[in-house]
């Protein structure tokens, strides 16, 4: 029993790691731009398809492919800002609708290029760390956890210690006051979209060998990410990371001990419960939401 709990804990840790990367980007984009990016799950999906194309297909080294996934999807984020969100500034509902349209375009493009089927991505390493008879941690999962922690720490340092990090937080807290300091929303939006896209992209690239890769794989991720940012408090990065852990442990635990469908229901119930008890989420405040 203890071993099963330990194993579930490790699985949850891995799920929390990649979910944090997706959710934090979503929060950052919402904070700076006021836009709920529905296409965020598709940015995750694009990261996975970069691996399908370059790693499974062209047999390039996985580390290089993951780095390409990060940069490429970050650039797709920038493209979204330039082509849609910039034109719809001051119209958050327009941004949301445009992002829904964009997610369909991305799904269709990937389906046209790769076909509507489940892609087989070979593992980049078969190594498994054997902690005991029944507690095993595949190195692939460990790497997802390590990279997620590294990127989240890097993001935290960027936001707390650098000029442009301050500019991003200032824009998120008060756009007009930020403009009065000479901070252009055009600049901070580009940075937010790049970071948001890059984090979703690398999450998709790293998990591609571990999950089923299809053109519609973004759905389940975006649903989980929405639950996470609502539980954590919209606009709070710390809250998103904490909520990703809570959600991943609850979801993985229920999946292990009961089943996956019940886990989805419990996840949504968790969000409802938080909305009833504390509508601003764990870390959210009313004036920021």
């Amino acid at each position: 029993m203890l071993e099963l709990l330990l194993q579930t804990g490790l699985n949850a840790l891995y799920a929390a790691a990649y979910l944090s990367l997706v959710a934090v980007g979503l929060v950052l984009i919402f904070g700076v731009m006021g836009i709920i990016n529905f296409a965020h799950g598709e940015l995750f999906m694009l990261g996975a398809y970069v691996v399908v194309a370059l790693y499974s297909g062209l047999q390039m080294p996985f580390v290089l492919v993951a780095a390409i996934g990060l940069v490429f999807v970050g650039c797709v984020g920038i493209l979204m800002e330039l082509s849609m969100f910039r034109q719809l500034r001051g119209n958050p509902l327009g941004g949301l609708v445009a992002s829904i349209g964009f997610l369909m375009v991305l799904q269709a493009l990937v389906a046209m290029g790769f076909g509507v089927r489940m892609e087989h991505v070979p593992p980049f390493t078969q190594d498994v760390i054997i902690l005991s008879e029944r507690v095993r941690l595949p190195v692939q999962r460990l790497i997802v956890i390590i990279v997620a922690v590294m990127l989240l720490v890097a993001l935290w340092l960027f936001l707390k210690r650098t000029k442009f990090g301050w500019a991003l937080r200032a824009s998120a807290q008060d756009k007009e006051a930020a403009a009065l300091q000479g901070i252009s929303l055009r600049t901070t939006s580009l940075i937010a979209m790049f970071i948001g896209g890059a984090l979703a992209g690398i999450a998709g690239s790293l998990t591609a060998p571990l999950i089923s890769v299809t053109p519609t794989m973004g759905h389940s991720v975006i649903v989980a990410a929405f639950i996470v940012i609502i539980v954590g408090g919209i606009g709070s990065l710390e809250g998103a990371v904490l909520a990703a852990f809570i959600y991943a442990f609850v979801h993985t635990g229920v999946t292990t001990f009961l089943d996956g469908v019940i886990a989805d229901i419990v996840g949504l119930a968790l969000m409802l419960a938080v909305l009833v008890i504390r509508p601003t989420g764990f870390f959210g405040s009313a004036d920021r939401a």
């Binding site: 937080r169 200032a170 006051a177």
Partner: peptide, 14 residues
């Protein structure tokens, strides 16, 4: 209109 969730020092630097 100071930035509420930034420190005094960070506010000045912005």
């Amino acid at each position: 209109r100071v930035f509420p969730d930034m420190t005094v020092r960070e506010n000045l630097m912005t």
